[in-house]
Computed example of a mutant assay.
Amino acid sequence: MTTTTEHNERIAKLTFASVYPLYVVKVEKKGRTKEELHQVIEWLTGFNEKDLRVLIDENLSFETFFQKAKLNSNAHLITGVICGYRVEEITNPLTKQVRYLDKLVDELAKGKKMDKILRKA
């Protein structure tokens, strides 16, 4: 499935602050912790917990959020399907980055081991 221009624009305008609480609920409902979520987000973006609080308070769009991020050099190892899209086939860079984050949160919620989520071994 390919993304449309409208889909990519909608993703870019979403705010991290609006999606973050949904990530927290998703992982905690499955027995994982907010600290583990922060570890996953920091691995992908370079943002620590303090950074996240500031970014949430600034109510940044995903576009600005990922412009400020330092994407992990191993992010390209994130593959698979999330929200009906195969991550490695997404051509829009921002949409791909957002789906990387969605995929990592999904893997955390599904109980995958942290080493696997963080593409260590």
Rank of each mutant, 00 (worst) to 15 (best):
M1H: 14
M1Q: 04
T2I: 09
T4K: 03
T5F: 08
E6N: 11
E9M: 13
R10C: 04
R10M: 09
I11V: 15
A12F: 03
T15M: 05
T15D: 04
F16K: 02
S18G: 05
S18T: 12
P21N: 02
L22Q: 14
Y23W: 13
V24N: 00
V24C: 04
V25Q: 09
V25S: 11
K29Q: 11
T33C: 11
E35R: 10
E36D: 08
L37G: 00
L37H: 00
H38I: 00
H38P: 04
Q39T: 05
V40E: 05
I41Q: 08
I41M: 06
E42D: 00
E42Q: 14
E42C: 05
W43F: 15
W43V: 03
W43P: 00
L44K: 04
T45W: 09
N48L: 00
E49Y: 01
E49Q: 07
L52E: 07
L52Y: 07
V54W: 02
L55E: 04
E58K: 14
N59Y: 02
L60M: 11
E63R: 14
E63M: 10
E63N: 07
F65E: 08
F66I: 09
K68E: 11
A69K: 03
K70Y: 08
N72K: 07
L77Y: 05
L77K: 13
I78A: 10
C83K: 15
V87G: 09
V87R: 08
E88Q: 15
E89Y: 10
E89Q: 14
E89W: 11
P93I: 04
P93A: 15
T95K: 07
T95M: 12
K96C: 07
V98T: 13
Y100G: 08
L101D: 02
L101M: 15
D102E: 15
K103T: 06
D106T: 12
D106Y: 09
L108E: 06
L108T: 01
L108D: 08
K110W: 08
K113E: 14
K116F: 03
K116V: 15
L118W: 09
L118K: 12
R119K: 14
R119M: 09
A121F: 04
